[in-house]
Computed example of a mutant assay.
Amino acid sequence: MNASAAARSAGRVLAGAEGDPGPLEQIFGFDHYGELLALAQSSLLAGALLGLVGGLAGVFVIMRDLPFAVHGISELSFAGASVALFLGLNIVAGSIAGSLLAAGAIGLLGVRARDRNSVIGIIMPFGLGLGVLFLSLYKGRAANKFGILTGQIIAVATPQTAWLLGTSAVVLAALAVMWRPLTFASADPEVAAARGVPVRALSTAFMLVLGLAVALCVQIVGALLVLSLLVTPAAAAARVTASPVRLPLLSVVFALVSMEGGILLALGSTVPISPFVTTISFLIYLGCRLVGGRRISRGARSPAYPERAHT
């Protein structure tokens, strides 16, 4: 009995309970939580990997102003997963293929920001339309269709975990190799190019790495809400620190808390994981925004920052 079957069984037990359940009781039920937790070890491992990948890649997404690109890549990742589902192929492989195709197109055709946004604007509706087409043609379980859009981490199978492990290792290794030059190129591309840093090659390489990261995150929170892992944690961290060390650390911590917290809540729930991940991530961002706002306000009142006092 896998985790999703156990979750359905727990839902039936809750539905058959005496009395009229309240709104929270209709969503949450922790009667069989211990059994589900024992079945979700691979899901927790996958969530940790995705938190690490999303937190680190998200730092450069924010530095390079690429949230729109993440959304565009996720649409073609969704299309690739839908095609694979229709053809009976590996969904993760299809998602990765779609992501790399989109990332390569954006990286090669969208050198300037204006061109990049135009390319993304073209890719997004095409990917979404293609994905919807193949999902409508698919005659299998409706849960499989729903999972591509909203995530299905609770039912991660062993082959899927192997794909996630392998792809995560590639992403993390690539980020480790390009971290310093990519940070330089992201902060000041003109000076980096003058110093001999291959700015354009790094940009294309990072887009491909970002494509892999998006494909991984689509497997967890679905194509619709992938921004909650690749944008929100890093954006939250950027509100409270600009340190090149603390920023990626906080981004990873926030992504891990969102992922693992979302999984633990989804285990005792009848709804998909994505609402929990996105809500936790959003609350973290709100908290960081409040903290960052208070620091700026205190700095504006401090004599040490006279230029801010007049703004």
Rank of each mutant, 00 (worst) to 15 (best):
S269W: 07
G140L: 10
L172M: 13
L50I: 15
H71L: 09
F276H: 08
A102N: 07
A102L: 09
A173P: 05
V53T: 14
L286W: 13
R180A: 03
G293F: 06
I220T: 12
L202G: 11
A113C: 01
G22H: 08
H32D: 14
L133M: 05
H310V: 15
A113P: 04
V111T: 11
V252W: 01
A235M: 12
H32M: 10
L135C: 06
G98Q: 06
V257G: 04
R289S: 14
S168Y: 02
A304N: 02
A97S: 11
G121S: 06
W163N: 09
R246L: 15
L101T: 14
V83K: 02
L52E: 07
P272F: 00
G107Y: 11
I280P: 03
L45N: 06
R246C: 06
L290V: 12
L14F: 08
L247Q: 14
A193D: 13
S251M: 00
L149F: 03
F28E: 08
A81S: 14
L137M: 15
F30E: 08
V170Q: 02
A266V: 05
A194G: 04
D188Y: 02
A3V: 12
L39Q: 08
V245I: 15
L14G: 14
G292V: 12
I73M: 07
S74A: 13
S82L: 00
G261Y: 10
G34S: 15
G110E: 03
I122E: 06
S228L: 05
A173H: 05
G287Q: 05
A57D: 05
L264R: 15
A194R: 13
L135H: 04
R295G: 11
A157V: 13
V70I: 09
A234R: 03
V257N: 08
G261M: 07
L135Q: 08
L24A: 10
S77R: 02
S9Q: 13
A242D: 15
A192G: 04
G107C: 06
V240W: 01
L36E: 02
Y305G: 00
T232K: 04
G110Y: 10
V61Q: 01
L14P: 00
Q160D: 13
S42V: 01
A102F: 11
I220A: 14
V132Q: 01
V252R: 01
T204I: 15
V171C: 00
R289D: 08
A201S: 07
S168H: 00
L101N: 07
Y33D: 00
S251G: 11
